[in-house]
């Protein structure tokens, strides 16, 4: 881009730039090579075999493990549950996180430090402890039922944990509740960098808070939103802990909390000893996440 006459200097600085880039990336590349790429290649190999890891016996079965997915009713249920879960949770957590961050970033708000501290708490706790607490809160005689009964929304308590109609929804609420603060914090950290002059100019033009959010904040945060949406998709498609603790590992009641990740775990660590099938499922899940993420990124970027 600079003057062409200084070609040799430009290419030298380019070499320095390359050197810097590769130096900066080397540790990350090395670690991902050893602990991700090698492991994934191993999984890929397993997925084309019938595997008994105890006896270290492998028999090549071609695409049998992959073909099995299409006739496996549970795989379809797991995918449907996972996709539904993601379709509800990702938009909900993204919008809520952005709104809360926008409000909390406002200088006019009193006590915002306090609010930030409180809102951040769920992110600090391990998901297993949170799931246990939530299961208590949603149980038949728990606070949620109590509240709904007292307000008159219910005449009879709902068995949220045992009823297949509600169990996945409870996990959705739990997941949104515990991920919003994390994404909100990421938005906030970026909002600090948002030049105030942009808002001031908009205020002179008489823009309302809503308009400022829509026309200044949202476009400014687009790269962060890409991150939030992609991490949301990945996180929801890989949801495991909550379903595992909630159903004691079975994915019940009636497969209503069966997610793909839970199914992978069941096949990898069950008496079924189907590491090959588990690997095939995992690779398929990774591919699905990849495609969904690409589509989401395209949509997010087109809106700009």
């Amino acid at each position: 881009m600079k003057a062409n006459s200084k070609k040799s200097r430009v290419s030298k600085s380019r070499l320095v730039e390359w050197f810097q880039a590769y130096t900066f990336l080397a540790p990350a590349l090395l670690i991902s090579l050893v602990f991700f790429v090698v492991s994934i290649l191993f999984s890929l190999y397993l997925s084309f075999n019938n595997v008994n890891l105890y006896a270290s016996t492998y028999s090549f079965t071609g695409i049998e493990n992959y073909a099995r997915m299409f006739t496996d009713g549970r795989a379809a249920i797991a995918l449907k549950n996972t996709a539904t879960f993601s379709a509800v949770v990702v938009p909900a957590q993204t919008i809520a996180a952005l709104m809360v961050a926008f409000v909390l970033a406002s200088d006019k708000l009193k006590g915002r430090k306090m609010f930030r501290l409180i809102y951040f708490l769920p992110t600090l706790t391990s998901s297993s402890a949170l799931t246990l607490i939530f299961m208590f809160i949603f149980n038949v005689y728990g606070p949620v039922n109590e509240l709904l009964l007292n307000v008159g929304l219910l005449s009879e308590p709902i068995n949220f944990l045992q009823n297949p109609e509600y169990s996945l929804k409870v996990i959705m609420v739990m997941n949104v509740w515990s991920t919003v603060p994390m994404f909100m914090t990421i938005y906030l950290a970026s909002l600090v960098d948002l030049p105030k002059s942009l808002y001031e100019a908009a205020e002179i033009d008489g823009a309302s808070s809503w308009e400022k959010l829509l026309y200044i904040t949202v476009p400014y945060l687009r790269p962060i939103t890409t991150y939030v949406v992609l991490m949301g998709i990945i996180g929801t498609f890989q949801m495991f802990d909550q379903a595992y603790i909630f159903s004691n590992g079975s994915g019940g009641p009636a497969n209503s909390t069966l997610t793909v990740a839970l199914m992978i775990y069941q096949y990898a660590f069950g008496q079924m000893n189907s590491m090959g099938y588990a690997s095939a499922l995992a690779i398929m899940l990774a591919l699905i996440i990849f495609v969904v993420s690409l589509v989401a990124e395209k949509v997010n970027n087109r809106n700009s």
Binding site: N163, G251, G252, N255, G270
Partner: peptide
């Protein structure tokens, strides 16, 4: 036998639907 866990998971999964009258 070796398939007990699998059968048990499936049974536990569907038992509530019967007991809840669904």
């Amino acid at each position: 036998g070796v398939t007990l866990t699998t059968v048990s998971n499936a049974f536990n999964n569907y038992l509530p639907t019967v007991m809840n009258g669904e």
